[in-house]
Design a protein around this nucleic acid. Structure first.
Lengths: 197, 197
DNA sequence: GTCTATAATTAGATAGAC
DNA sequence: GTCTATCTAATTATAGAC
């Protein structure tokens, strides 16, 4: 079946998402206009509405993609049953996924409040589900006596925060490689949780 | 000197800042209009320009206030020379200042990219200056052999991130008091830095 | 200091031609 | 699928009356 002249759906669709990802992460969702996105893609503003019903849905799709891929990644990665090994896997998986995705990470942390009620609830559930996986590891480790933690909820959020901060300073061409960072962070996370090592 | 009828500068000025603080933190700078701020204050939009030359300056003043007060606070707090004691003071001072100021904290983390070039540079310098105070503590502790850290820069950012995450979940009426949190966080920070205790 | 009115611009989204 | 043109609504900021 010959394509209609001027039809570029298969190349334009991802371009729209890519442009929105870059612009939203750089200037913020509310500060970016559909015209700016269109200019970045190389089309007129009206053409964007072939790929998204509205701006809100475009934001949601970026955040939804990011979170579901993260959960899929963790689902495929995890296999160990030992809480210590699972924890090390979590840190590695988290950094491997987040470090190369600075733009999506920024959006996922910053644009929650620009989601409408329904979309917010969906993304929040995914985020919570991710944090729950870590908390479960922490709690198992506590019961087994391998972690020494005052409060599992606080400790979980401390680890999340410690890992999350990488997004503010990490650069792919920085002083330390991703592999080196994984090693350093694995050690620090063990220490925060008072792991017996 | 009798004031002109309808003159409320001394009560309106802080109201404008307070309204902007609340609305910017809740919906984001770009998503909040001057009309919304005016409505929150109880005046018409035009009246706001008696108190700020423009919206950008209003944002800047909020962030500038927050950062300079934080640095002042730390300047008054710090006295110990022992790195361990200084570190404990840093954690206490950081949480005491940040926990009751969720709105300003949110803005300071999220709205950097909505500052113009000049304002951004000013705020970034203040932020950097704050982080430097922590890094200095970490480095002194390393040289004195009280902290066991792979990389002082990374460790500093880890501590910042760990503390910063409190802003996403802390509530004044939550399960744990600020004092209890200070204690828990002091312990976790010591552990991340591999302190000999 | 605050109001009303308004200028000048820009926003998201749609219609219809090609 | 994309373009041009356009609708409607909202935006920041200013001017001048009170």
């Amino acid at each position: 079946m010959a394509r209609t002249a001027g039809s570029h759906a298969q190349t334009t669709a991802p371009k729209v998402k890519a442009a929105a990802l870059t612009l939203f992460s750089r200037h913020g969702y509310a500060a970016v206009s559909m015209r700016q996105i269109a200019a970045e893609v190389g089309v007129q503003a009206g053409a964007l509405y072939t790929y998204t019903p509205d701006k809100q849905t475009l934001l949601f799709s970026l955040m939804h993609d990011h979170m579901t891929e993260l959960l899929t990644e963790w689902g495929q990665f995890v296999c160990e049953t030992d809480p210590l090994a699972r924890l090390m896997g979590f840190v590695r998986c988290h950094l491997d996924y987040h470090l190369p995705r600075r733009e999506a990470v920024f959006i996922s942390y910053m644009e929650l409040r620009n989601l409408n009620e329904e979309n917010f609830a969906t993304i929040e559930n995914l985020r919570k589900s991710y944090e729950d996986r870590l908390e479960e590891i922490v709690q198992t480790g506590m019961t087994q006596g391998v972690f020494l933690v005052s409060d599992s909820k606080i400790a979980t959020m401390a680890v999340i925060g410690l890992l999350k901060e990488t997004s503010t300073w990490y650069r792919p061409d920085g002083r330390l490689s991703a592999a080196q960072l994984v090693e350093i962070y694995q050690k620090m996370v063990l220490q925060v949780l008072g792991a017996h090592i």
